[in-house]
Simulated scan of single mutants.
Amino acid sequence: MRLTTFLLPLAAAPLAIGAPEPNPVAPRAPASTGGLLSELPGILDGVQDLLSKDTINNLEIIVSGAAKLLASDNIDVLQDILTNAHSLLTKEFVDNTTTLIGDATPLVEDVSKLLGGVLGTL
């Protein structure tokens, strides 16, 4: 029995050496490379500027205006407007309108000169 009390610790010794106790001291934290934490004061200053009294008042005006615009009475009207605009504003219509305006510009300038001359003689 005395031999087993001596051999048992010897048999366990390689296991203890193979898996030593972990180091109780934690490794150093990595050095800060800047990032979000270094930018936080600037971000907070920007947010503070955004949340000024004037900005909040303007947001209230926008939200109340949007609420009136998006009231249930107006939804059908807005849908009709968008549907009509979608069918009207085709590429062909826009191209034709651009051409028409380009062609009419010299005519408008000539009429303006003519009216200026007529009014100048009066």
Rank of each mutant, 00 (worst) to 15 (best):
G46S: 09
L100M: 12
L69Q: 10
K91S: 06
N74F: 03
Q79H: 15
T90V: 00
A26C: 11
A67D: 10
L114G: 07
G42Q: 09
V94F: 02
D110Q: 14
L119C: 11
L122C: 09
T98P: 00
A13C: 14
E60A: 11
F6M: 10
P24D: 02
D49W: 07
G46E: 05
P41G: 02
L82N: 14
V63T: 12
V77R: 13
L51Q: 06
P20G: 02
L89P: 00
L7W: 04
L78R: 02
A104D: 08
A85D: 12
P22M: 03
L88R: 05
L59M: 13
E21S: 14
P30H: 00
L119H: 08
P27C: 02
V118Q: 04
T55A: 15
N58D: 14
L8H: 04
G117E: 15
N96K: 12
G65R: 04
D73H: 05
V118M: 10
P30D: 04
I17H: 10
G120L: 04
D73N: 13
L89N: 06
L78F: 08
G116S: 15
T97A: 12
P24K: 04
T33H: 09
I62L: 12
Q48S: 15
D95P: 00
D49S: 15
L88I: 11
I101N: 01
L114W: 05
E21F: 12
P106N: 01
K113L: 07
A12H: 04
A71M: 03
T105M: 11
N57E: 15
S72A: 14
A85S: 15
S64T: 12
E92I: 01
L70D: 09
L100E: 08
T4W: 14
